[in-house]
Design a protein around this nucleic acid. Structure first.
Length: 480
DNA sequence: CGCCTTTGACCGGCGC
DNA sequence: GCGCCGGTCAAAGGCG
């Protein structure tokens, strides 16, 4: 009965979601078939992460894959949600995963149990071929990891391994096995320069509900992918890059692993003069392929790593970088280091230089110092966490964008579920167990989202729809 | 038995 | 057209 009830909730929600957002969903699909689909795009997210520091309490949340990778890197959420929340998280995960080429299944369709998978293999192949796009968006994660692969919460099956040119380490190919219809692939390869760095590249978007431990990565990658596919990237509202980045950060809580390095966000644009940049970060475009690099493997940046003027470069590389830098103590905290965030932000203006395939994050005017009027919300009394100014400045730009708010909304709903659309809000549960303390205020959006008090304003989450309804939220591919 | 990894073969895109 | 290379397939075998 409980399962049926939860399923009904999900169906009801998805039905409403589909009814109210058919246009946006179509847009999301249309985006994929847009000119960007002609190119293979790469988003790179990197983490600098240490290993082997799980606490007992953290370990209790580890599941099957964790056991086999006890010393490994785990990406995911640790909000202590009960299993009932899985369905709600799955809704978010599914919704946030829509957008790549209209590959999503019917929203009401649950992914089949493993017993059914075999019988669906033929269907899988045919549908997969139908879903194939010329080139898929890719999201790459760089992380320090001494295990064969990162634990991102998903179930993967290795289907191939090849020696890649220019790298002595073989590249392994994995596919998502949660659903036979899932088009998601991932490639895992050691960095040739630094064998301790594991490069995990995700391709495609999950078309099925995910375990809650996998929603963080799924939301991140889908957001990044959708952002890259979105033509709006070239517009002044195109903060997709940052959305992806911030999504990564907010989702990479440290329950099962620790972040050794300070969280470091940086970005610079090199095709134009007078651009700001964060050191140790890179979004790059190589071979006409726009590339975003969020490098968290870099060592912690010092406090002087604020925006600086970037000399004009001849290359067509835009760098956007996150590097982690949390102390073991801090990283053992159950909630995201960003979860105590609160501040006011100016809007940045990332643009996409189509001629060069660059993603540019214009983090403000030259005459407007980025840190101006900027609070330091990360530095809370609880954790004494002090992040580089660059992070704060970037966050300022990021969080001021409606897209980020959408991502945040997705993350929030992943965490806590929602009342609207027939999905029950689990306020008490969240307040008691999730330890999620995330507050975001935006000068632009005239609203706040705070899970601490669970006073989520729809105007903040979705400024385009300033009504009382939190849902439906725009899908990542629908950001504008 | 089911699911996984391994590994050589195969295929398609791309550059010359 | 040819070769290189990245990516996938599928048979074989391992593991729990």
């Amino acid at each position: 009965m409980e399962e049926a009830r939860e399923e009904n909730k999900m169906l009801k929600f998805l039905d409403i979601f589909q009814q109210e957002k058919p246009e946006d969903a179509a847009n999301a699909r249309g985006v994929t078939s847009h000119e960007e689909s002609e190119e293979s795009e790469l988003v790179s997210l990197s983490l600098g992460i240490s290993l082997n520091r799980k606490t007992k309490g953290e370990r209790k949340h580890c599941r099957r894959e964790d056991e086999g990778m006890d010393k490994g890197l785990t990406l995911g959420l640790d909000i202590n949600l009960d299993p009932v929340n899985f369905a709600e998280a799955a809704i978010c995960s599914t919704a946030s995963s829509f957008g790549e080429g209209g590959k999503e299944e019917e929203p009401s369709e649950m992914w089949p149990p493993s017993k059914v998978l075999k019988g669906m293999k033929n269907l899988d192949k045919s549908e997969a071929s139908q879903n194939d796009q010329p080139k898929k968006t890719r999201v790459s994660i760089r992380a320090r990891c001494d295990t064969q692969t990162m634990n991102d919460g998903c179930q993967w099956r290795k289907y191939g391994q090849k020696m890649a040119k220019g790298n002595p380490c073989p590249r392994a190919y994995y596919r998502c096995t949660i659903s036979p219809l899932c088009p998601v692939r991932k490639q895992v390869q050691r960095c040739a320069e630094d064998m301790s760095i594991l490069i995990t590249t995700y391709e495609g978007i999950h078309n099925h509900p995910l375990p809650i431990s996998a929603t963080a990565m799924a939301c991140t990658t889908s957001a990044a992918a959708s952002m890259l596919q979105s033509p709006s990237l070239s517009s002044q509202h195109g903060h997709g890059i940052v959305n992806s980045a911030i999504s990564s950060i907010t989702n990479f809580t440290a329950p099962n692993y620790n972040l050794d390095n300070a969280l470091n966000f940086s970005t610079y644009q090199v095709s134009r003069p007078h651009q700001f940049y964060f050191p140790n970060s890179s979004i790059s475009s190589l071979n006409s392929h726009p590339t975003i690099t969020l490098d968290l493997t870099a060592p912690p940046t010092s406090s002087n790593s604020t925006f600086t003027h970037m000399p004009k470069y001849s290359s067509t590389t835009t760098n956007l970088n996150f590097s982690s830098g949390f102390s073991p103590l801090q990283s053992s905290m159950p909630s995201s280091p960003w979860s105590s965030y609160s501040g006011h932000f100016n809007s940045g203006t990332p643009t996409h230089n189509r001629n060069h395939g660059d993603y540019l994050l214009n983090t403000g005017t030259q005459n407007q110092p980025y840190l101006e009027q900027l609070h330091h919300p990360i530095c809370t009394s609880n954790n004494n966490l002090s992040l580089p100014d660059s992070i704060i400045a970037a966050t300022k730009a990021i969080t001021s964008n409606p897209k980020f708010q959408s991502v945040l909304a997705t993350a929030l709903t992943t965490y806590v579920g929602n009342e609207a659309g027939g999905v029950r809000l689990r306020e008490n549960h969240v307040l008691e167990n999730s330890e999620l303390n995330l507050k975001l205020c935006s000068e632009n959006s005239m609203g706040c989202a705070s899970s601490r008090y669970f006073n989520v304003s729809s105007s903040a989450l979705n400024p385009q729809q300033g009504n009382s309804s939190i849902f439906p939220l725009p899908l990542p591919g629908q950001w504008k």
